[in-house]
């Protein structure tokens, strides 16, 4: 669609120079919009990272009775493995459970000494992880239903539900808020670009008229304006990336220098995050820039 000949690039460049003030204004505004967008993106990405980390540890643990049979265990395992909401089913034997339990106890504790494999009171269990943490509740009620058949050998189903719910609600809220901010800022950026390009189109309307009379195609006439819009978007995207990157490094430096906040280990690594953001910003800048130009010039092409 781009007819990228030398004259196209030259025209786009000329026009940028001619309207340098307006171009600068729209770059600055779009950069500001993208920086705010970037801040929210950084926060969302980090929340997602943290929730993913937590979600990865979210599980239902199905404890068996002390005198359950091998048949009951096989039946339950079979049942769980057939459920396609479930990501994995992991068996925890009495011995492993005891080992894990002992680890949590002080070795000098008197209890540790009195328990051994002979009188191990820990139950066997199945640890169930969901493909999607939102569905853990559903999985739990399915297992409960299964248990209602009776004679299943299940003692107790453990699931830390409220905690998960709060976390998913919070990340939902953040996502919705982000979406809202993205939409508002996109509209603002769009109109800024639109107006900049409209000015340059207006300044060159005579030229557009001549082009039409000489038989230039609409795409040919449009190309330098689209290029100009895309260029504004790209400059804004790069400036915003630089700003967000600098800011993020600064914040990370501050947080890791603060011993009270041992959370930095779980935060997204700057390079991975900036890599994602720069691509997103560029796509966003180019898209908003070209759409804005496209609409700005449409009216002037009807000759």
């Amino acid at each position: 669609m781009f007819n990228l000949r030398r004259s196209t690039i030259r025209d786009a460049g000329q026009s940028l120079r001619r309207n340098s003030l307006m171009s600068l204004a729209s770059i600055i505004s779009m950069t500001a919009a993208l920086v705010i967008l970037g801040i929210f993106l950084v926060i969302t990405m980090n929340i997602r990272q943290v929730t993913q980390h937590v979600e990865g540890n979210l599980r239902i643990q199905v404890f068996m009775t002390q005198n359950c049979t091998q048949q009951q265990k096989d039946a339950l395992k079979n049942y769980l493995e057939q459920n396609n909401l479930i990501k994995s089913v992991q068996y925890e034997s009495k011995t492993t459970a005891l080992k894990n339990f002992s680890k949590q106890l002080d070795s000098s504790s008197s209890l540790a000494g009195t328990i051994n494999s002979k009188n191990n009171p820990m139950p066997e269990s199945y640890i169930v992880r969901a493909k999607n943490a939102n569905q853990l509740g559903k999985i739990k009620s399915q297992i409960e239903k299964y248990n209602q058949q009776g004679n299943t050998g299940i003692e107790y189903i453990k699931y830390g539900r409220d905690y998960i719910q709060a976390l998913t609600n919070f990340s939902h809220f953040i996502n919705m808020f982000c979406l809202f901010v993205v939409i508002v800022l996109s509209v603002i950026s769009y109109f800024l670009i639109y107006n900049t390009i409209k000015l340059t189109v207006f300044a060159r309307r005579k030229e557009i008229g001549i082009m039409k009379y000489v038989g230039a195609t609409d795409n040919y006439i449009r190309a330098p304006f689209l290029l100009e819009g895309a260029f504004l978007g790209i400059i804004a995207a790069l400036a915003a990336t630089l700003a967000v990157r600098t800011g993020y490094y600064y914040v990370l430096g501050y947080l890791s220098g603060n011993a009270l906040l041992p959370i930095t280990a779980n935060l997204a690594s700057p390079s991975a995050l900036i890599g994602k953001i720069v691509i997103f910003f560029l796509a966003y800048g180019i898209l908003i820039g070209t759409i804005g130009s496209h609409v700005a010039i449409r009216k002037f092409l009807d000759v």
Partner: peptide, 22 residues
């Protein structure tokens, strides 16, 4: 069609009273 009009205009040279030079 609209997209064919430019090709029509390439067969027509136009001169106006106001010169319309860049």
């Amino acid at each position: 069609s609209k997209s064919q009009i430019p090709y029509l205009r390439r067969k027509l040279g136009v001169v106006f009273q106001d010169f319309r030079l860049l």
